[in-house]
Design a protein around this nucleic acid. Sequence first.
DNA 1: CCTGTCACGAAACTCACCGTCTCGTCGCGG
DNA 2: CCGCGACGAGACGGTGAGTTTCGTGACAGG
Lengths: 201, 201
Amino acid sequence: MHERYGVADDDITRRRNERAHTAILEATVALLREDGYPNLRLDAVAARARVGKTTIYRWWPGKALLAIEALQTLVDPPHVTFSGDSRADVRALVTRVAEVWTEPTVGDTLPALAADTARDPEARARLVELLAPRRAADTAVLLSAAARGDLPHDVDVPLLLDVVFGTLLFRRMRGAPVDDVVDELADLVVAGRRPRVAPAP
Amino acid sequence: MHERYGVADDDITRRRNERAHTAILEATVALLREDGYPNLRLDAVAARARVGKTTIYRWWPGKALLAIEALQTLVDPPHVTFSGDSRADVRALVTRVAEVWTEPTVGDTLPALAADTARDPEARARLVELLAPRRAADTAVLLSAAARGDLPHDVDVPLLLDVVFGTLLFRRMRGAPVDDVVDELADLVVAGRRPRVAPAP
DNA sequence: CCTGTCACGAAACTCACCGTCTCGTCGCGG
DNA sequence: CCGCGACGAGACGGTGAGTTTCGTGACAGG
């Protein structure tokens, strides 16, 4: 065949369309925020991005994968700083998670995507990848706390992260307040202290 | 008006159709299990239940509410027994939750419903109600453990339940094993013991 | 300067499914 | 025997996903 086909697909395909590419992702984020994933129409994305629907389908196989890539920027961890105080670091971690889940674009879209990709292992894998950078950053926080001796040396970090992510997401899903439990959750992680009800004022 | 309108709607409406009513719910459960919520077609429900689509829409406003009611029987708690041993009771609780979430009909459908009802507070309320009986039963378990002195007397029961439900559901959503963490989670609840990695065999 | 190529935007199109509507049937009470 | 109302079947309109078609403009090579 021709030699040009030897180059990576992305290099060939995406050279021309920087503008369209980012415009599509931005439009998707905006519409996810306004209408939610179930009401996201690709016609609307195309219209807002001033792009033909063709262009969208040239790069993404469908609605789900487009939404996943669009969420990436929102979910990626900001800068994670280490204070050296495990309690403070973990509390910051929990707060960051609460913020992401509370963001409507993420908190509502994520369960929708989980449902949409339930029967498509490949798409599901992509969805899990979406959280990978954040999980990596948060893993580092817990490992550093463990190294400092503030967590058991053989602590199951992934499971402990699931406790934080899962508890907050579940509260979001059932409409319970999320921000209110940050401290209790941080104490649970860092001290094994089970949550108490706030004393009467 | 006529006196017959004084009777509750259900009594009037549902007298005639016992058969159709249960057939619809059973068909919905079966199709949820086979195809998943996103692929659930009401035409298919009607066909399998040998019922006109009209009959479905006579009683349910749409797909979401029908699915919620169909899940009810699966989510309702079986018999909850108290052994008197808090650790054993809590472990049984966690196991029950893991079983429900693992059941594909529930574990896949619940996030989908959460997404579908994100912009409809009334439907969302119904969805939360779906879990109410189970939550009530599990609340009793934790309260009895607290009364026995095995949990702090002022323990935040709802939040602790969110930890159990949320952690397991989140693991299910991200494709991680659910059954494997039952013991660790039970220990977290009953002793504040943070999860450890299993020692090498 | 001309020409072929290729990605693009716009829009028409197909297909599937939701929710509604129509119609003929059947069971039940009067 | 008659009439009412719920029923099953299926046709219908509307909406949105994903595909196809077509005309345009940017760029490269001659």
